[in-house]
Amino acid sequence: MNKKLIIAAALCGLALGSRAQTEKGSFLLGGDFNFHSKRDKDDAPRTNSFGLGPKFGYFISDNFAIGLGASYFYSNQESWTTDDQGPEGPIRKFNNGFRQSGFNIAPFVRHYIDLNAKFKFFSNLSVSAGKSWGRSLGEPTTNNYLSKFELKYYGATLSPGFVFFPTKKIAIELSTTLISYHRSEDTFKYDPNNVNTLYVPQIRHMFQFGLSTIQPAIGVNYHF
């Protein structure tokens, strides 16, 4: 009988400990890191990017938190050459790469669902606003030119994931983007070959859903 009471008490303690990690009035402090590599064309170098950023949240009710995150990212693609077929034979074409970095601020809301004493599922909805800047890499030719640019962008992202609590206060997360929308606007561009070039700012909209958005991210949070 005593053994049964001890086991029941232990199970209740685990359940309460799991709830205390995300109960009303608790805080979370953490950050994440992500890396993404893709190839837009078969003959082009891969575009590599990474991001990192801290975040802070407060649980306004059990398993429901609001917070604020900030992040920095960097991406680049090396320049490359291709052989195009011209009227008089192959033509060597030089393609510019690019280097870009930026930052953004992202308020978020997050909801957790208990799976067991150590694991939870969560969904994270964030809206973001930020700025980035960069330049093209390579040599100017008759087919292209070097440029510098700045962008302003806004967006929203829904990211589900799983969190593992190895201890009461430490949480390890694995998440990915499920749905995202971003709006960006060019604010500056410079052509060193023609300083009088008139450049009309471009506005771009990008919506992604499902497998095309998969960008795994690992994060570690401290709950207190």
Rank of each mutant, 00 (worst) to 15 (best):
K152M: 13
Y145G: 07
K152P: 03
Y154H: 07
G138L: 05
L125A: 14
G155D: 11
K168E: 15
S159M: 11
R135C: 06
Y154N: 11
S147W: 02
F164Q: 08
G155R: 03
K131L: 03
F149Y: 15
P140S: 15
G161D: 08
V127F: 10
F164W: 15
W133H: 12
P160M: 06
F165C: 08
R135D: 12
F162L: 15
L158Q: 01
G155N: 12
P160F: 09
N144V: 07
G138S: 06
S136V: 01
A117E: 10
K120Q: 08
K120P: 01
L158N: 03
G130E: 02
S136H: 04
R135L: 01
R135E: 14
T167S: 15
N144K: 00
N124G: 00
N144Q: 05
F122S: 07
S128D: 08
T141C: 01
G161V: 07
T167A: 13
F119N: 12
Y153A: 01
W133Y: 10
A156I: 11
G161N: 08
S147P: 00
Y154C: 07
L151V: 06
G130Q: 05
S126W: 00
K120F: 02
K131G: 03
P140E: 10
A129S: 12
S132L: 04
F165V: 05
S126D: 12
N124L: 05
S136G: 14
G155E: 05
F119P: 04
K148W: 01
F164C: 09
Y153F: 14
W133S: 13
N144I: 03
S126E: 01
S132I: 02
S123V: 10
F119H: 08
W133A: 10
S123G: 15
K168Y: 03
E150K: 15
Y153E: 05
L158G: 02
T142K: 04
G134W: 06
K131W: 07
A156N: 06
V127D: 00
K152W: 10
N144L: 05
N143I: 09
N124Q: 09
F162I: 15
L158K: 10
R135V: 01
Y154W: 11
W133P: 02
K152I: 13
F149M: 02
F165G: 07
Y154E: 12
A117S: 15
T157M: 02
K148N: 15
S128I: 01
T157E: 14
S126M: 04
L137S: 11
T142F: 02
F119L: 15
V163L: 04
K152N: 15
Y153L: 05
K168V: 01
G161L: 03
T141R: 07
E139T: 13
F119S: 09
T157D: 12
F149H: 09
A156L: 09
S126Y: 02
S128Q: 12
